[in-house]
Design a binder for these strands. Structure first.
Lengths: 143, 143
DNA sequence: ATCAATCATATTGTGCACAATCTAATTGTG
DNA sequence: CACAATTAGATTGTGCACAATATGATTGAT
């Protein structure tokens, strides 16, 4: 029988929540939650994407993204408009205010990274391991 | 500027959700959610603990645990009773049914672990890395 | 013994996650 | 063209997470 400390799932769950907590303070000064922040990271990379493209990148569905994007819209960080060529699609675009936030947000990322005390190379290795693990879990059809 | 793929926070967040998703199917057959499952893991280790002891182990507060434990009580997996010596404390105990679930749950842990395709030694290394990371994030007083 | 301070848990409110379902727009096939 | 099937998002409902606050029990200082 595995103890709690022997469960990789719990180590991930705890680390993820600790990381989110690390971002919470700095992000609150920008008026962002952590999930809103990662949505903005995607938009800073590629502006003017559909909700489903955003969802594919973040692995989040419309049930999560629709209200989140509405809040970002209310905060005037993004605009949401239907694609004229296909009215089913909703295009999410950064506002000037949304673009302007990128520098501050980048500082926060570096700040939190420093707090982890990780060597860049060690972080890259963990990044790779986590990426592989995620891919394997996604590719295994449940049995 | 870091891309989404360069954010360790996102790698953790995505891996954690993928792992939870991996447990979802098997656990649903036991009528458990993932957070309920890890609470049960702690109780299988040490029965008859207070809510705050459980919370310390899981790093979850009463706002999360109180309703979760009520659902486990409704499912007849745990009993909740006040400590007669200090009525502020609530003692959580496994029922026979709760104890009986341990074997099935352990099978699920092993099953999901196999799905990750990880060598035991690699998993142990990741476990250690994640543990360290979590500890560092917790110990850094926000600046 | 009294009562302010502390402590353990519960409650409330906000914002995710995600399953299930719904609606409206588009596409493919006869 | 007609219309079933598909697609993109939105909505609804449940269950976390977590901050803030409330409630009730206990402790400690006078």
């Amino acid at each position: 029988m595995r103890s709690l400390d022997n469960h990789l799932c719990f180590a991930l769950y705890a680390a993820s929540r600790a990381m989110t907590a690390g971002y919470r303070g700095p992000l609150s000064e920008l008026g962002l939650t952590y999930p809103q922040f990662i949505a903005m990271v995607v938009l800073w990379e590629a502006d003017g994407v559909t909700v489903s493209e955003l969802g594919e990148r973040l692995q989040l569905d419309s049930g999560t993204l629709t209200p989140l994007l509405k809040r970002l819209e209310q905060a005037k960080l993004v605009a949401r408009q239907r694609n004229a060529d296909d009215e089913r699609e909703l295009i999410v675009t950064l506002t000037d205010e949304g673009h302007a936030l990128q520098h501050k947000a980048n500082d926060i990322s570096e700040q939190v990274f420093c707090r982890t005390g990780l060597e860049e190379s060690h972080a890259m290795q963990m990044l790779g391991d986590l990426h592989d693990l995620t891919a394997r879990l996604r590719n295994t059809p449940s049995i």
